[in-house]
Amino acid sequence: MDETGKELVLALYDYQEKSPREVTMKKGDILTLLNSTNKDWWKVEVKITVNGKTYERQGFVPAAYVKKL
């Protein structure tokens, strides 16, 4: 869990989004888990830094590609 009590997951593999509802992740990324009720796709939040500014983006990743921490 992070400092706000949200559950975290670890990306076990790289994943490139294939639709606007998904998010890209790299092996080793730590993501915030938002919803894991679907056994195949989990909703996560990723933080992306571009030119020194951090953005948060929500989307789905394959559940088999992440592990709860």
Rank of each mutant, 00 (worst) to 15 (best):
M1D: 15
D2T: 10
D2H: 11
E3T: 12
E3W: 04
E3F: 05
T4G: 14
T4H: 14
T4Q: 14
K6A: 12
K6M: 11
K6G: 09
K6H: 14
L8Y: 15
L8R: 12
V9Q: 00
V9N: 00
V9R: 01
A11K: 01
A11W: 02
A11L: 02
L12F: 03
L12G: 01
L12K: 05
Y13A: 11
Y13Q: 14
D14C: 05
Y15E: 01
Y15Q: 00
Y15S: 01
Q16M: 13
Q16K: 14
Q16V: 15
Q16E: 13
K18Q: 15
S19T: 11
S19A: 07
P20C: 09
P20I: 10
P20T: 10
P20H: 10
R21F: 13
E22P: 04
E22M: 05
V23S: 01
T24M: 04
T24F: 03
T24S: 15
T24L: 02
M25Y: 01
K26C: 09
K26R: 12
K27M: 07
K27A: 13
G28W: 05
G28E: 02
G28H: 04
D29K: 02
D29F: 03
D29L: 04
I30P: 01
L31A: 07
T32A: 12
T32K: 13
T32L: 15
L33H: 01
L34Q: 03
L34P: 00
N35Q: 10
N35R: 06
N35I: 06
S36Q: 09
S36P: 06
S36T: 11
S36W: 07
S36R: 07
T37S: 13
N38I: 05
N38M: 08
N38F: 06
K39L: 09
K39F: 08
K39N: 13
K39P: 14
D40Y: 15
W41M: 05
W41R: 03
W41F: 06
W42I: 04
W42Y: 07
W42F: 07
W42N: 01
K43N: 06
K43T: 07
K43W: 14
K43S: 07
V44R: 00
E45M: 12
E45I: 12
E45A: 14
E45K: 10
E45R: 09
V46E: 03
V46R: 14
V46L: 12
V46W: 04
K47N: 10
K47M: 12
K47T: 14
K47H: 12
I48D: 07
I48R: 07
I48F: 10
I48H: 08
V50G: 07
V50R: 09
V50S: 10
N51D: 15
N51W: 07
N51Y: 07
G52E: 07
G52A: 06
G52V: 03
K53C: 12
T54H: 12
T54D: 12
T54I: 12
Y55H: 09
Y55Q: 13
Y55E: 12
E56R: 14
E56K: 15
E56S: 15
R57C: 06
G59P: 00
G59W: 03
G59I: 03
G59T: 01
F60M: 09
F60C: 10
V61S: 00
V61G: 00
V61M: 01
P62H: 02
P62Q: 02
P62E: 02
A63T: 05
A64K: 14
A64L: 11
A64Q: 11
Y65N: 06
V66S: 01
V66I: 08
V66A: 02
V66P: 00
K67D: 07
K67H: 09
K68A: 07
K68L: 15
L69K: 04
L69G: 03
L69R: 03
L69T: 06
